[in-house]
Simulated scan of single mutants.
Amino acid sequence: MIRYTKKYTQLIWLIPIGILIFLFGYKKAPILPSAGEVPQEYVLDFLMEGNERFSADEPLHPDQTLERLRDLNRGQHPVAAIVSCSDSRVPPELIFDQGLGDLFVIRNAGNIVSDYEIGSVEYAVEALGVPLVIVMGHTNCGALAAFVDHDHDHSHIYPEYIQKIIDYIDAEEEEKALPRDIPNFFDKAIEANVLHGVHELKKHIPHADSLINHKHLRIIGAIYDMETGKVKVIEDK
């Protein structure tokens, strides 16, 4: 009798949990389709819904299991390619609440789009068939801050390869077109750099015009707000 009582006394801590479930109900986690099941015309909506979960502090962290990892060993089928900044605070998979194998991500300081990035995106489009490419900048970007500082003060000396990044951004036509006396020059410079990346990809990805016209490919820009966690799509005017 003592052994019987001891056995069930150890489970008494479950009673409060049972009461709470009874009083407030059990909130079942939503069942989402895997990214690969989403029709290509809805991929952006799917990613933005993931960002809404992330920014609301309600991420689901889908497809991040060892089983998923082993499945991917047989091949990858990402639903989007994303060119983003290397900034440690800007991880695309977390920002869009996606899992292993869902996103083909190219990262560098300042989300620059030059030859190597174009080649990587070309692979994603041609070999992997991604229907969506996003060039994503972010607020308070260090690379763009260096560009803005250098634009205002050419006397500042940066290390050689950081200067190469600054010079690349400085040579972009979209940056040259910005008035220097506007109060939000930093934010507009971030946006102009994103749009430059979009223009470069549309110009250099093979058959991009045809793919876009036939709705097999979409190339867009976006800005991630590090304060709110939200991603905003920017229009290519």
Rank of each mutant, 00 (worst) to 15 (best):
A222D: 07
A222W: 01
R3F: 10
T228S: 15
K27G: 04
V121E: 01
S55C: 12
L132H: 00
I190H: 00
Y123E: 04
I12R: 10
F186W: 05
L178I: 07
F46Y: 15
V148E: 08
L128E: 06
A146H: 08
G18P: 07
V233P: 01
S88L: 05
T228A: 12
S155E: 15
R68P: 03
I17H: 10
F147P: 02
L178Q: 05
Y161I: 06
H214W: 06
L20N: 13
S88N: 05
Y168N: 11
T228M: 12
E117R: 00
E122L: 05
N193R: 02
R218M: 13
L44T: 03
R218H: 03
L100V: 04
S88F: 06
N111L: 07
R3D: 13
L66K: 01
R89P: 02
Q10S: 14
A56Y: 09
R74I: 07
D97F: 08
P39E: 15
F96I: 09
G101N: 05
A124N: 03
K176N: 12
P159Q: 11
G197R: 01
V79P: 04
V198Q: 02
V79S: 05
R74P: 00
P91Q: 15
A81T: 03
A177N: 02
I162V: 15
I169T: 00
N51Y: 12
I95M: 09
D187P: 03
S120L: 04
I112A: 01
